[in-house]
């Protein structure tokens, strides 16, 4: 059973095809770097994979279930462009809310556990709007991991993070991969992504340009991938 199966996905915005017949599979335990230039369609693809947007044609299966199936979503964790945290709620209230929405057994206990893990237990009752940027980012990471997702979909996860949040996220991703989790992340930070990745998916102008294992050549020279398979 694949962790993620993308079958002939097209996505149109009006007449413009943002995604053109994308197909690939991700096996459990793999860490896939989703690469491509700006406007290639990475975010659109991630939104379709996460069930935030419906594919115009084709389909996506997460652990053999349609990604639009609400139960399939219990196994997905997402970090997108926004932190997806409510400013007017406290850190504890935010995590308790999402734990309750994911129907976890003990939302309060789970929320406290993740506040401790992200070093936010001292400010658990503080409103998020009073938090520093770094604290908000760590809370967003906790929100994405608190239901122990088997598949993580990350859209530019390191872009706006401070050093502490990057270290936290890298640690959590390594732990998730060791535990058999699956990660698919889009990023422009090639070196960091390729160090973590086991596989690579390259998208160019909405089309799948390359998919396969991450090789030593890619690690030695991150530009190799774009020169060989993508646009110059």
């Amino acid at each position: 059973m694949s962790a993620l199966a993308v079958e002939g996905v097209w996505k149109f915005y009006g007449d413009y095809p943002a995604l053109r017949d994308i197909s690939f599979e991700v096996e459990p335990g793999q860490c896939v770097a989703l690469l491509g230039r700006n406007g290639a369609g990475k975010t659109t693809l991630l939104r379709v994979l996460a069930g935030l947007s419906r594919a115009s044609k084709g389909g996506v299966k997460v652990f053999d279930r349609d990604t639009l199936d609400r139960d399939a979503r219990s196994s997905i964790g997402i970090i997108g462009h926004g932190i997806a945290i409510y400013d007017e709620l406290s850190a504890l209230e935010n995590l308790r809310l999402f734990a309750a929405l994911y129907s976890l057994d003990d939302p309060a206990k789970t929320a406290l556990h993740w506040l401790e893990r992200t070093g936010l237990e001292r400010v658990k009752d503080g409103l998020v709007r009073e938090f520093s940027r770094g604290m908000r980012q760590r809370l967003a990471v906790a929100r994405a991991f608190l239901h122990n997702p088997r598949l993580l979909l990350l859209d530019e996860p390191f872009t706006a993070l401070d050093d502490r949040a990057i270290a936290l996220l890298q640690g959590l991703l390594r732990d998730a991969l060791k535990a058999g989790g699956t990660v698919l992340m889009s990023t422009h930070q090639l070196r960091e992504a390729l160090e973590l990745a086991t596989n690579v998916v390259l998208i160019s102008r909405g089309k799948l340009a390359h998919q396969g294992p991450r090789t030593q050549e890619m690690l030695d020279d991150p530009g190799y991938l774009y020169r060989t398979y993508g646009e110059a």
Binding site: L52, R73, I78, G82, I83, A84, D87, F98, Y102
Partner: peptide
């Protein structure tokens, strides 16, 4: 819309 919270709600298993 603030902080893209709607995405997190839609992506959750809440029907």
């Amino acid at each position: 819309l603030e902080n893209d919270c709607l995405d997190a709600l839609i992506a959750s298993p809440v029907p």
